[in-house]
Structure formats: C-alpha cells, structure tokens
C-alpha cells in the first residue's frame, strides 16, 4: 500500500492493533485481554463516529460526486451527461492545462523552499533575547491571520505603477518598471510568489520556534565542549533536531503552494496572458467562467493525484533523514 511508510508509527500501539489481542499481556488487568481489546476497538470507533460521519457525508461523498462529474459534461443547470474519459483525454492536449501545470510547479518549487528557509532563519533570529523581539514575532506572524483575499487588494494597490506606495518608493531609488509589476509578464509571478511567502512564513516560523525551544540546552553545551563552532552546532545539533518540524512545515507548505489561489485571483486573475494561472485558478475559470464543471473536476483530480504523489515522495525522503533523540 502506497502510504505505508507514513503510518508506520514508532509507537507500539499500532503494532498491537494489527495483531490479535492475545498479544496484550497486561498483568494487572482485571478482565481478560481479549475483551479489553475488543471493547477499546469499539470505543475507538465511537470516538471516531462524529468525525467520520461528517467527513463521509460532506467531504468524501462530494469528492466521489466530483469524481463522477469528471467523467461528464455538466453545467449545473442541466443534468450531467456521461462522456467517459473525454475530459481527461482533452486535458492531455490542452495547452491551458499544461501552462497552469507548469506555473503551479514553478510556484511550488520556488515558494516552498523559500518559505521554509526564511521561516527557519526568522525563528533562529527571534529565538534570541533582545528588545523588540515580541514585536518582530507578532509582526511576522500577523499576515497569517489576516484574510488573504482582502490583504491581496492592499498588495495590488501598493504595487500599482502610478499610485502604489511600493512602486513610488522604488522609483525614488531609481527602480522604475516599464509597466505595472503585476501586469509585466517578467515580474507578475514573482509578485504573487512574494505575497504567498509573506502570508505563510510567520506560521512556519512559529512551528520552528517551538521546535527550537524544545531542544535541550545541554546538547549545545556538549557540542561546544567538543569544540564545535557556530556553523557546526547549527549543522549537527539544531538542524537534525528540527527535522520533525522541517517535515511538518515542508509538507504543509507544499500542499499550500500547490493549491495557491486567493492572492492570484485578486492580484492578477492569472494574467498577464495566463503567466500566473495555477491549476486551482484554471479549475475556477473552467468551472465558474466557462461553466464546464465536468472538465474542471477532471483538472482538479489530476491536481489531487499530483499533490498526493508529491507529498508521499516528500514524506518518504524527509523521513529517512529524520533523527530521533
């Protein structure tokens, strides 16, 4: 099974779950082991009931519906019409799809590592004690909790070539774009990428900060006594001990970047000439503008598959590099 390595917990509990309950030998238990295990299994399902009911009804079922729709021609008004794999074959030769696919990959490949590295750098910086640290932490985190849809309007305004503040300040130091940053095919993608990094870096920074604070001091002391320099301490103590956080952050960041939508929708609408159109943007355009919900579903399932495979690869790779202590 594909995701097996993900789920192989170091906890012994999982392994006991998969074996017959006879293996459970708690000496002090008052009841026979078999009954205990059976009851706990039932309890587990009881605990899961509300969640599973909701997930199945409101996510899994619609997902299956969407999968069905991806094999149909559907406009929301008329009944869906079965077209077999036509949507998928059309997609393979659709230049708009490949363009969006390329943009999505580009966005993810740049934004994910940049966000993760910046988050780590900020965390290292703000793990020091100095005046103004609380301000900096809050300031960096704040973008994460404001609405991207609205703040992207502020960004677009700031970047306006004629009355935007950032454009104005840049022009004072001699940086003058030939046209608006957002409408210039050379810079539009970079602009939405910057906003993407800006939005999430604070959240990942906090995850790293939390990780840094749980690293025991004596490990640094030991390294120092061994004569390790700053870089060596970072390389051999900090980084390995943050591998849990790195795995979490990079998986979350990758999933988020592959689904980039909000700021692109507000700032460029995928333009100029589709240079910033990502897959989710394309799904939106095919669905809500071209009224082709069947085709839009097909695109989104290709995206889901892509996200899934990439996340699994990432899990597998980073997991191997993980260190336990």
């Amino acid at each position: 099974m594909l995701p097996a390595p993900v789920l192989r917990e170091r906890h012994t509990m999982t392994t006991t779950a998969e074996r017959p309950a006879v293996k459970l030998p708690p000496p002090k238990r008052r009841r026979p082991a078999l009954r205990v295990s059976g009851r706990r299994s039932l309890t587990a399902w009881l605990f899961l009931t509300p969640t599973l009911l909701i997930l199945i009804a409101f996510t899994v079922y619609p997902m299956v519906q969407a999968l069905y729709l991806s094999f149909t021609d559907y406009n929301l008004i008329r009944a869906a019409e079965w077209v077999g794999i036509d949507n998928y074959t059309e997609l393979l030769s659709d230049s708009a799809f490949w363009n969006a696919f390329g943009n999505t990959v580009l966005y993810a490949v740049v934004v994910t590592p940049v966000t993760v590295v910046l988050a780590l750098a900020f965390a290292l910086m703000l793990n020091q004690a100095f005046h103004g640290r609380a301000f900096a932490r809050t300031a960096i985190f704040l973008p994460f909790i404001v609405s991207l849809g609205i703040i992207a309007i502020a960004w677009a305004f700031l970047l306006d070539p004629n009355i935007g503040l950032i454009s104005h300040w840049l022009s004072l130091v001699g940086i003058v774009p030939e046209q608006g940053w957002l409408s210039d095919p050379r810079y539009a993608m970079a602009a939405v990428m910057i906003v993407g990094v800006w939005k999430n870096v604070g959240f990942y920074m906090v995850i790293y900060l939390a990780g840094l604070q749980s690293i025991p001091v004596d490990m640094y002391e030991a390294a120092r006594l061994d004569g390790a320099g700053v870089w060596q301490r970072f390389r051999n103590v900090t980084l390995p001990l943050l591998s849990n956080q790195t795995l979490l952050v990079s998986v979350l960041a990758l999933i988020a970047t592959l689904q980039a939508f909000d700021q692109i929708y507000v700032m460029t609408r995928g333009g100029p000439f589709f240079r910033t159109e990502t897959l989710v943007m394309l799904v939106y355009r095919e669905g809500f503008q071209e009224l082709r919900f069947g085709y839009a579903s097909a695109i989104s399932f290709v995206l889901v598959l892509f996200v899934f495979i990439l996340s699994m690869v990432q899990f597998g790779y980073l997991r191997r590099k993980q260190v336990t202590y």
Partner: peptide, 12 residues
C-alpha cells in the same frame, strides 16, 4: 482529505 483542494468538492 488533507490534500484535497476545497474547490474540488465545492459544487457537489
């Protein structure tokens, strides 16, 4: 489900 973009299930 964590990897499922919300837009996919929106219409159904």
């Amino acid at each position: 489900l964590l990897m499922l973009p919300f837009q996919v299930t929106l219409i159904p």
